[in-house]
Amino acid sequence: MNLNGIGQASSYASSAFASNSVSPTETYKRLIGADRILAAAAASMNLSRGEFEQPRIRLVDQTSLIHLEITGGTAEEAQARGDALLAAFFAELDALRADEQATREDSGLAAIGDYKSSVATTRADIAKLQNDSGLVSVDQYNAIVEATRMLESRVQDLAATLQDKTHSVASLETTLGIPAKAAAATLKLYADAQFIALTDEVGVHAARLAEAQSRFGDGHPKVQDARAAHAAAKAATLQQAKQVTGLTMADLGTLDLAPAGARADLLAELVRMDAERAGIAQHHETLSRRLERELARQHALAAPAARLQDLQRDFRVAEAVFATAIARSQSTKSDVYASYPLVQVLENPSLPYNPSSPNRTLAYAAGIAATFMLLVGLALGWMRSAVINRLLNKPGDPA
């Protein structure tokens, strides 16, 4: 009998006739003649043990048959004694088989109790380890290891991507001669309409200053007025740039003040690439911190996972042994003929037609033989007497 996922139990009844050392028929022969069976048969007929005669038991050669003979005062009584003897014999067989089953079951209960205790102890150890470590099963630990391995691979890929992006941004910064932060501030600044207007005004005042300087000397009032207007416009432009970008006056000198045409596109590309690099760097940092936590967790759960695997294996073994023991205990209940094979009555006790004793033919023969021997004895006695008398009366003997 196979119990899927639990265990296996095998039960078979070997033939009692397969043994050369033990003969079931000889066992039953001794059992039928046992005093307790004869006493039980006598009690069922309200007879004493002494009144119930000993049966004659004979084993039939080359067969497994047992021949019984029992006598009684009458033919009906002999038949009744045979039935009583068979009934007592079968009752005793049932009692012996029941006692054998009870003995087997009692001997198996102790082992089953030990197996049950082992299963309970292992289950308690598993529950305690799961509660302490938070690890439910070895599969969970394997899933953690696999997830950590994949996370480590992602971190390595992000590191390579981040390195490529960093090199690309650095190369473009070198080409443009401006850092990515300044390029972003430049694009932001030139997206402001007021700054553009102020820049145009600075250009107008610069043209007027140049025109005045070309016509008059530096001390001429028109030149001074044009220079002052130009300075005021430039100061207003720088103040607006500071307000828009949030940079200091010193940092404003790093801005590209001529982002026109293809250079503006390159500045935009630099800003975009730097933004991608910053995003990848942040993602890489986040995953790196997560990887460190997962590696620490994996290292902390390594020993509990190994211990849990051992306990679960021990639990499966103990559970299989326990279930198998129960299955075997239940399956052996069907093997009731292991020690005492099945017995069938081929012929019920018959009603004799003639008494077994006395035998009339034998009595007649014995009477005839006795009469013949008596006659022979008498004849021999008569002949002996005649011979003696002849010898005594022989001529020539003194009187």
Rank of each mutant, 00 (worst) to 15 (best):
M1C: 02
S15N: 06
A16E: 06
A16G: 08
F17P: 12
A18K: 09
A34C: 03
R36H: 14
A43N: 09
E53C: 11
Q54H: 07
V60P: 15
D61A: 14
Q62R: 13
Q62G: 11
T63W: 03
H67L: 15
G72M: 03
E77M: 11
R81Q: 04
G82S: 04
A87W: 04
R97Q: 05
E100V: 05
D106Q: 14
A111V: 09
A127M: 05
G134C: 02
L135H: 08
V138Q: 08
L151T: 04
R154K: 02
A159K: 12
K165Q: 14
T166D: 02
L172Q: 00
G177L: 05
I178G: 02
T186S: 09
K188P: 04
F195T: 00
A207N: 09
L209W: 00
A212C: 05
F216S: 01
G217M: 07
H220R: 00
A231D: 11
A233L: 00
K242I: 12
V244C: 04
L255K: 04
L255Y: 01
D265M: 13
L267T: 01
L270T: 00
R290P: 02
L295Q: 09
L295D: 06
A296N: 10
A300D: 09
Q312L: 04
R313K: 14
D314M: 10
A318Q: 10
T324L: 09
A325F: 09
T332P: 03
V336W: 13
Y340S: 01
N348Y: 15
S350F: 14
Y364G: 08
A370Y: 08
T371G: 13
L375T: 14
G377T: 09
L380N: 08
G381L: 04
R384G: 07
R390A: 08
L392A: 08
N393V: 03
N393K: 06
